[in-house]
């Protein structure tokens, strides 16, 4: 029996969301009194897999497992699911965790379905109670929580980014153990013809600690409005979000949309400028630690969910905030 965490990596570094899961997995493994393994998948050429594994070794797993193959050079669900299953079999993993990125959700679910095991997708909490592993799901678009328990020998969960804090690295490093991997001949998978990173350099909404969002309130001069949002975001190292009204009006691309049919985010700080606070917007951001609303209408519903509010014109308040933040943060 063991706890196994799949660690995704980007540009030679482990993904923050995967390390968050690994941090909490330590507590789960201790609670179940079983070892904790971190799994790094990658190509067998170049040093990327090794340097990621060396980095992950400092985050308190009992060992880092590396599984390499030319087949794992680019992400393909069909192949990555086989690799995860190979590691599960090798270590007799009984609790299998991934970050709830799209890849993490898909790979976790595929392995769970193949092994006829219970699955809890996109969980917001994990714990051990009376020797039993429990995962907490948010359903009905974050309006209902439920404790999930599992029957059968294996439990699978993908964990929502920022559900747990980023752990700090330790001085001592866990051993790194390479595992053999042979892709089964009959595996059905996709062929990747072309792949490119989009929006490189931007902070992703789901990983962001701070998000500044703009809404239809910028309609008077959308270009200037979103420039002001971006300037504040830059000063605070924040990601840019938007309401659906702003996206539908073409002020910013869909990938910035927060809410029911956009992204679910849970930053430490969410600043909503010119956003009224419709239920479908709240569904995506009400898990934020501190919510600030800037709106010229004192009766806007967003103020009922906010911790701090400023009634005012966003064209005046946003630049004043950028200036005040720049002054105080140096």
């Amino acid at each position: 029996m063991s706890v196994l965490v799949w660690i995704e990596h980007i540009e030679g570094k482990p993904a923050a969301s995967s390390l968050e899961v690994l941090g909490q997995a330590r507590a789960i493994a201790d609670g179940l009194q079983v070892p904790l393994y971190a799994l790094v998948l990658g190509t067998d050429t170049g040093a990327e897999t090794d340097s990621v594994a060396a980095n992950v070794a400092n985050y308190a797993p009992d060992a880092v497992l590396t599984l390499t193959s030319p087949e794992l050079a680019t992400y393909r669900l069909g192949v990555y699911a086989e690799a995860l299953k190979a590691a599960i079999a090798a270590q007799d993993a009984t609790v299998i965790l991934t970050a709830a990125t799209t890849q993490g959700r898909d790979v976790c679910a595929a392995a769970a379905f193949d092994l006829d095991a219970g699955l809890a997708p996109d969980v917001v909490d994990l714990r051990v109670e009376d020797g039993q592993f429990i995962a907490v799901r948010a359903i009905y678009s974050n309006n209902i929580l439920a404790d999930i328990t599992f029957s059968g020998p294996r439990s699978f969960a993908s964990v929502r980014p920022r559900a747990f804090p980023m752990p700090s690295p330790a001085d001592n490093a866990a051993p790194i153990t390479p595992l053999a991997f042979e892709l089964p001949a009959d595996v059905v998978t996709e062929t990747v013809l072309e792949s490119r990173v989009v929006g490189g350099g931007e902070i992703s909404l789901t990983d962001a600690r701070i998000i500044i969002s703009g809404g239809r309130g910028v309609a008077h001069d959308p270009v200037r409005g979103f420039t002001l949002v971006e300037e504040l975001a830059k000063t605070l190292d924040a990601a840019v979000g938007a309401s659906r009204a702003a996206v539908d009006a073409g002020y910013v691309p869909y990938k910035h949309q927060v809410g029911q049919t956009g992204k679910t985010v849970r930053p430490d700080l969410y600043i909503a400028a010119g956003i009224s606070g419709a239920i479908q917007h709240l569904a995506g951001m009400s898990g934020s630690k501190i919510i600030v609303a800037i709106n010229q209408d004192a009766s806007a519903p967003i103020f009922e969910r906010a911790h701090y509010g400023i009634v005012g014109d966003l064209y005046e308040i946003l630049p004043a905030l950028t200036a005040a933040a720049a002054k105080r943060l140096g």
Binding site: L119, L145, A146, D147, I148
Partner: peptide, 16 residues
């Protein structure tokens, strides 16, 4: 079923 649901609840209402 391979999973069971318990303690179905509303999220804690936050400081409003």
């Amino acid at each position: 079923p391979l999973t069971q649901w318990a303690n179905i609840r509303k999220p804690e209402s936050r400081r409003t």
